[in-house]
């Protein structure tokens, strides 16, 4: 989803003749890769009470609505979270995680259990912004890429998740909480490049999540 739009941006920006590049997120990702541990951080401010955001997030089943690399999250009988990631070419990647911190309306943290192909952890911190400016949502996600050929494949899966992508996830969370739904444009509903013009019914049937009235 990012590749086509990044191509567009590169084209657009190089048109503008400025070496803005793709931003600090990608650079930071590249820089931390060598050390094997990758930590990504991003934040957004949402005009809602911390409690509302906490409740929405704490029901992890909501995450696929705004996280582009997550297909589903469910709770297991043991109280753990079973994540299904969206792999390349539709190949799912599943792992289990446990909630390691849960402070209502403040912080939720989770960590993958032993046996995950790609050990990972995440935390969302909610902080009230000053003077009625809503709630700051700070998201941190970390990966510990293991060695080996299989792992290399897995790592490639997550290479598409620099901070930019995580930030887009938080924007969609903001859209859902502030406007009721993910905002869709004629072009943005498509994973690949699509002109800003309506889609045919057939094209639309291949797009997830679009609403018919």
């Amino acid at each position: 989803m990012q590749t086509h739009t990044q191509d567009q941006l590169v084209r657009g920006v190089s048109w503008f003749g400025i070496g803005i590049g793709l931003g600090a997120a990608v650079a930071r990702f590249a820089a931390t890769r060598g050390s094997r541990h990758v930590t990504l951080k991003t934040s957004v401010t949402i005009r809602k009470e911390p409690a509302e955001i906490y409740q929405f997030w704490r029901d992890f089943r909501n995450l696929p609505r705004f996280m582009s690399h997550v297909a589903s999250v469910s709770e297991t009988s043991t109280g753990h979270l079973r994540w299904r990631g969206k792999g390349p070419a539709g190949r799912p990647l599943t792992w289990e995680a446990e909630i390691v911190a849960d402070r209502p309306n403040e912080r939720i943290a989770w960590r993958s259990l032993e046996g995950a192909l790609l050990p990972n952890h995440g935390a969302v911190l909610l902080r009230r912004a000053p003077q009625g400016r809503g709630t700051e949502v700070h998201l941190t996600v970390g990966f510990e890429p293991p060695g080996g050929a299989l792992a290399a494949k897995v790592v490639r899966l997550f290479e598409g998740i620099p901070e930019q992508r995580l930030n887009n996830d938080l924007r969609r969370l903001k859209q859902i909480l502030e406007t009721g739904d993910v905002v869709r444009s004629d072009a943005s509903i498509h994973r690949g490049l699509h002109a800003a013009r309506p889609s045919s019914t057939k094209e639309l049937s291949e797009v997830e999540g679009t609403v018919r009235s």
Binding site: L9, G12, V183, S185, S188, A196
Partner: peptide, 28 residues
């Protein structure tokens, strides 16, 4: 929905506009 593209150019994104580039939303 393409706010990140506008952010790269302008630092933050304005609203989406009708018929005014993908950086400003990709709306017909």
């Amino acid at each position: 929905p393409n706010a990140w593209m506008a952010e790269k150019l302008w630092g933050h994104s304005p609203a989406g506009l009708f018929g005014y580039s993908h950086m400003l939303g990709g709306y017909a």
